[in-house]
Simulated scan of single mutants.
Amino acid sequence: MRIGILAVQGAFAEHEKVLEQLNIPYIELRKAEDLDTPYDGLIFPGGESTVQGKLLKELGMFDKIHAQLLDGMPVLATCAGMILLASSLDNDTHHYFGTLPISVKRNAYGRQLGSFHTISECKGLGDIPMTFIRAPYVSSVDDSVDVLSVVDSHIVAVQYENQLAMSFHPELDDDLRIHQRFLELVQNHAS
């Protein structure tokens, strides 16, 4: 098993450290040629979704990744990654891959000062630490989407088929269960 980590911008190094702790090989996806190396799952890190979306298109990576998502490749998307997957954005006319049938409100908690940390329940995992940084939240979901976590009446984690997306940054906490759940999706998809 090898995981492809989108590394054009954002907090990809923190996801790499988690995969290293779990002894999972990964490849940084920085340019179109990197997509030719086989990998079994994708991680979209936090960062600036607008910049990531623009770079994916400029670097010729968007279409191939989009096709992989449509073909069911498992993905873990955190913060900006959730925005890249969302089918619509409440406060933005852009949309990117659109493979996750949710609507997302960008920077929903305000700017940097709106960042916070909490512990809350995540379906199937129990209570987990959650670090929110200029985070979005999910304002609405299609009936086919499984809501995994709600914090202060806002949806902050969802799963749809092989797509796991969350507003918070599991890579910034010591708890490995979100990544382990993602790796189970990858393993099940590969077999």
Rank of each mutant, 00 (worst) to 15 (best):
T131E: 00
A108D: 02
N23Y: 05
D40P: 11
I65Y: 04
D143V: 15
P74K: 04
T99Q: 10
K123W: 02
P25N: 12
G126I: 05
V75D: 01
S87D: 13
V104P: 02
H117A: 14
D36C: 13
T50Y: 07
D63Y: 01
S139E: 12
I27N: 07
I102L: 06
T93W: 03
K17S: 10
H66D: 13
M82T: 12
D92L: 06
A32G: 07
D146M: 15
P38R: 12
V145N: 03
I83W: 02
V75P: 07
E16I: 09
G124R: 11
L42G: 00
P136T: 06
E58D: 14
L59R: 14
R134L: 01
D90H: 09
A108M: 03
E33L: 13
I83Y: 02
I119C: 10
G72H: 05
D146K: 15
F116R: 01
L59E: 04
A135T: 02
K57D: 12
L22V: 07
P45Y: 02
E48M: 06
S144F: 06
D92T: 10
D146Y: 10
Q52C: 10
S120E: 14
K64M: 01
L76F: 07
V141L: 08
I65C: 02
Q21D: 11
D34K: 14
I102K: 06
H66I: 00
D40E: 13
G53N: 10
D40R: 13
K57A: 09
L125Y: 05
L113H: 01
H117Y: 13
T50R: 04
K54A: 09
Q52Y: 04
L19D: 04
Q21A: 11
Y39L: 14
V75R: 00
D71R: 15
G47W: 06
L84M: 11
S120G: 15
Q52P: 08
L125C: 01
F97I: 03
L22W: 02
P74A: 02
D71L: 13
A86C: 05
I65V: 13
Y137G: 02
L19K: 12
E16V: 13
C122G: 03
E16R: 08
G81D: 08
I102W: 05
G98L: 00
V51F: 00
L56P: 10
Y109E: 00
F44Q: 10
G110Q: 03
E33N: 13
F97T: 07
L59G: 09
F97N: 07
L125E: 05
D90P: 05
Q68S: 12
A135Y: 00
L69W: 01
V141Q: 06
G124W: 05
D143A: 15
N23M: 11
I24T: 14
M73Q: 14
S144V: 09
P101S: 02
Q68K: 15
H95Q: 14
P129D: 03
K57L: 12
T131V: 13
I102C: 09
D142T: 11
F116K: 03
G60I: 11
R134I: 00
L76S: 02
V145H: 08
S115G: 07
G41M: 08
T118Y: 01
I24R: 15
L59V: 08
F62W: 01
P136I: 04
F44G: 05
H94I: 00
S103V: 12
P45W: 08
G46A: 06
I102T: 12
L125K: 12
